[in-house]
Design a protein around this nucleic acid. Structure first.
Length: 118
RNA sequence: AAGCGCGGGCACACAGUCGCCUCUUCGGAGGAGGAAAGUCCGGGCUCCGCAGAGCAGGAUGCCUUCUAACGGAAGGACGGGGUAACCCGAUGGAAAGUGCCACAGAAAAUAUACCGCUUUCGUUCAUUUGAAAGUAAGGGUGAAAUGGUGAGGUAAGAGCUCACCGGGCUUUUGGCAACAAGGGUCGCAUGGUAAACCCCAUCCGGAGCAAGAUCAAAUAGAGGAAAAGAAACGGCUCGUUUCGCUAUGAUUCCUGGGUUGAUUGCUUGAGCUUCUUGGCAACAAGCGGCCUAGAUAGAUGACUGUGCCAGACAGAACCCGGCUUACCGCCUGCGCUUAUAA
RNA sequence: CGGGGCGUAGCGCAGCCCGGUAGCGCACCAGUUUUGGGAACUGGUGGUCGCAGGUUCAAAUCCUGUCGCCCCGA
């Protein structure tokens, strides 16, 4: 399987409360079966992303797992973005399968012309 | 061999690619747990008066030892369970006091007398019925009924007397102690409940790393009140009283402000461990060796391949010692019982 | 990290302090009334008292552990 390589350092993460608020206030929403995506134009030079898994999802293990899966999907998709956006991914389900999440995110983003067509 | 009992260990492994965090001598190295969990206890650490006294409140509760400390552990005593190995136990005090014990029952804590039993006196055809006295053996109720069983004894009965069992008091021996064993004595006098209030003994100051400290930026650099008594009022971290400390400005109180980010605290510690010594043991002492996550919207993941028993419960957030709860299974040591064979 | 509260009938709540009978309202069922329905009236059904263990003669109530939910403070 040929994965697009992508570095994902800490500077690409959403770090602060006010930054989260900035995104939520002016975001558009994409609904996928297991993930909800908020996005808007980037505040800084390059796009940043945050992950949310609330206590409704499950225990600490489940929440960590779903965050990792969302992060992995973002990492694979980020090189195909057409423009720099800030993004928040919210987990909706406790059970996630990485390929399903990735493909549903991909189709959803293509509709909003965030992704280049391959 | 089967069925049990008591421990100990592991928690998918290996290889490759991409990605994340920390450290770095820039080659690389390290990177969640036995419970990291629940937050049920105990400590360290930090600040508040480096914390004193009383009351209130709370916790613990057979004895001794271990420990920094504990509600933990070890060893023992007693009681209970098991054929046994072994396991379980909030196990101080009810003659300090108060309360409660539904229903049933004569009576529920006071020695009383419902049905009874017996004698005497009267009455009657009649052991029919009435009165007085004695009695608590028997009856039914209840979770629980004032020692139990047997014999003697008696009008009927009764520790009234005796034997055995149980109990109280006292004493001797053993033991650090809990307690055990034995002797003497008392015919036996006072149910249960303290996970009801309570009494006794021991212990506990309060708050918590979002504690606390530093730096930068922004905002503010303000307004009002308090004057010689070291007295009152107030303040000094959150049950309360007391004690102690506390001043005229660089102080205290009220109003206003009290925000954001970074650094630190942050991992070398009551640390782990080989051996030796002491101890029944928990554990302690000595010598040597080792360094084992440190994130801060919160790091361990994804994919591929191989193998097998097909991977459970579950994610560090200041740090330790416990307890409790969750858990697919696998490996292993010692011991007990039963059966068979030799 | 710390603190507090609640789990009782299908729903909302009493009862718990001080232990012995589980009750109230709505809902549900049956009957009366009405031409029929609603309303009203009468009667009735329905509860492992979140779960497990203990204390006690006896536990919704007391104690311990545990599960779930909600709220508050820094």
């Amino acid at each position: 399987m040929s994965l697009p390589s992508g570095a994902f350092p800490k500077s690409k993460r959403l770090r602060h409360k006010h930054h989260f608020k900035y995104v939520f206030d002016r975001a558009k929403r994409i609904e996928c079966p297991s993930v909800r995506v908020y996005f808007t134009n980037a505040l800084n030079e390059h796009g940043q992303v945050g992950f949310i898994a609330s206590k409704k999802i499950g225990s600490a293990v489940v929440r960590n797992k779903s965050k990792r899966i969302m992060r992995e999907c973002y990492r694979h998709l980020q090189s195909n973005f057409t423009r720099e956006v800030d993004m928040i991914l919210v987990a909706k389900k406790s059970e996630m399968i990485i390929l399903d999440v990735k493909s549903s995110m991909k189709t959803g983003m293509e509709k909003h012309k965030l992704l280049k067509y391959e």
